[in-house]
Nucleic acid binder design. Sequence first.
DNA 1: TGAAATATACATTCATGTATGTATATAATA
DNA 2: TATTATATACATACATGAATGTATATTTCA
Lengths: 203, 203
Amino acid sequence: MARKSKEDAEETRKNIIDSAIELFLNKGVSSTTLNDIAENAGVTRGAIYWHFKDKTDILADIFSEVMNPIDTLAREIINDEAKTILDLKEHLKFVLKDIIFDKRKADIMSILLTRLDYSDQYKDFFNEHNVSHCKLLDATSIFFDKLQKKGTISTKFSARMIASSMHCFLSGLLTEHFRSEKDVMLKDHYGEYIEVFFAQIIN
Amino acid sequence: MARKSKEDAEETRKNIIDSAIELFLNKGVSSTTLNDIAENAGVTRGAIYWHFKDKTDILADIFSEVMNPIDTLAREIINDEAKTILDLKEHLKFVLKDIIFDKRKADIMSILLTRLDYSDQYKDFFNEHNVSHCKLLDATSIFFDKLQKKGTISTKFSARMIASSMHCFLSGLLTEHFRSEKDVMLKDHYGEYIEVFFAQIIN
DNA sequence: TGAAATATACATTCATGTATGTATATAATA
DNA sequence: TATTATATACATACATGAATGTATATTTCA
């Protein structure tokens, strides 16, 4: 085969991306070759090199697809849409739900968090992800600080400390979920996890 | 050069391991070649192949060095050394401190958590690590269950839920710490993080 | 007919594994 | 104790395969 219509070309492009996602998930990014991707997509490497510069370029395309959900969350908090802890909890639950049940998003986040090792060639992706994290950290710090001044939440810990804890909790929750869905019961209890974090466990 | 004394051989072996750890940390496991390791250790690949079967074998050796701290923690809880939440918190703080400040342990855990992507060739390591996690999950579940029956902690959530949350929190804490030491203030506040998790944040 | 969308072919690099060479530590022996 | 044999601890060289990138051929749309 050779040249196809513009729509067909767009289709092969999508096939390549889909194949890449599938393989990245199953084999990990670094051990997936362009040949693997091509075969899985039913094309040759020629097609891949037409649409993409290299493997990193494919990855960039994949990650650009979902505006980082963490980032969205940060924006909402910055935009002052959350007034109370209850609001924040609802936001968090929504974001979790969104990431977990939107298969495409889940797959992509899973690749970022568990199928990519921290090496030079992928540094940019981690940096970008880290920027989002920092944004969220700052936003929630400010948020908790406000609540502390209002007297809504305890001042036993600094706002930043609480924000950082929350952030690590969420990160760990997702990472463990993607690492082994069986052990973390996130799908059935995502709301509860959020509640646990903010609840008083001790009587 | 050629044959050296048994002590010298042991030394080169250690050099190889140290070089590997250093490079795995800096470049990630998959993009580190045996040649990189050899050069960095001041030997040739011949030396590496004398001491190890392949890269995976080096990794296995590295991981076997530290008995997984998570595992140790689980054992202590199973052995009933923790009677109260206070005990548990102290245990957790100790484990955290141990992992963070023992550079060797920190490096190795960092490799496991952030420098290794989840692919077929490394599946065994993740499995082993996961077994430890499950042990800890079971142990803490039983622990929290006891405390709930005693009435020491809230019964609003299932013991397993609380255990899983704690587990994800710890995992996230370490992972984020290793990903970027700057953003997580674990070194200066490791105790506080533990306190935050068990504290009542809401007034 | 020209350019777009691929396949094909090829050149190159690179990592791995293995085979072999070699010097020497160590043990056996006399 | 001196000598010899052998296993050890590497270095070197090579063979191979695999992944990549690129150049070119091929088809076909527009």
